[in-house]
């Protein structure tokens, strides 16, 4: 396989890996809690890119049946699965997006609570305060 078609075949998956690792790095190595939360969102978004990439089919169009507005009577024979991209990953990712938003909301709420308690969002400063309090 030559290099161009290799890149075309795998570029999406490589991008998702890079995004995933960017997010994971931010969550592991960053000191600021909000940066960690941003990392978490990137991390989740990478998985969404991965799923949506699975769903793509060459030569397929949006998963909405063309000329399907007469409620399905007499159009069945025209529908070929190869004409439409795979709808299932899109459905799953709609759910995953909502889960991501929900997690983000709760994470921000907790970050606000942490800020109210310590007056800072930097982890090392918080740790210092905890050590001082014993």
């Amino acid at each position: 396989m030559d290099i161009v078609s290799l890149i075309a075949a795998k570029a999406n998956y490589w991008t998702y890996v890079i995004l995933l690792m960017v997010g994971l790095y931010a969550m592991v190595a960053k000191n600021n809690l909000v940066k960690k939360i941003v990392g978490m969102v990137i991390f989740q978004t990478a998985v969404i890119l991965f799923y949506v990439s699975i769903g793509y089919k060459k030569g397929g169009t949006l998963p909405i049946i063309m000329h399907g507005h007469d409620h399905g009577h007499g159009v069945d024979s025209f529908i070929k699965a190869a004409d439409y991209i795979n709808p299932l990953p899109h459905v799953l990712m709609l759910t995953a997006i909502v889960v991501g938003v929900a997690t983000l909301g709760v994470a921000l709420a907790l970050a606000i609570k942490v800020y109210q308690e310590y007056g800072t969002l930097e982890e090392d400063e918080i740790r210092k305060q905890i050590e001082l309090k014993g």
Partner: peptide, 18 residues
């Protein structure tokens, strides 16, 4: 996925498969 694409109209009469 072909099941969803091919049967959505006869099962649910909804053209948008998603």
């Amino acid at each position: 996925s072909p099941y969803f694409i091919e049967h959505t109209l006869e099962d649910t009469a909804v053209p948008n498969i998603v």
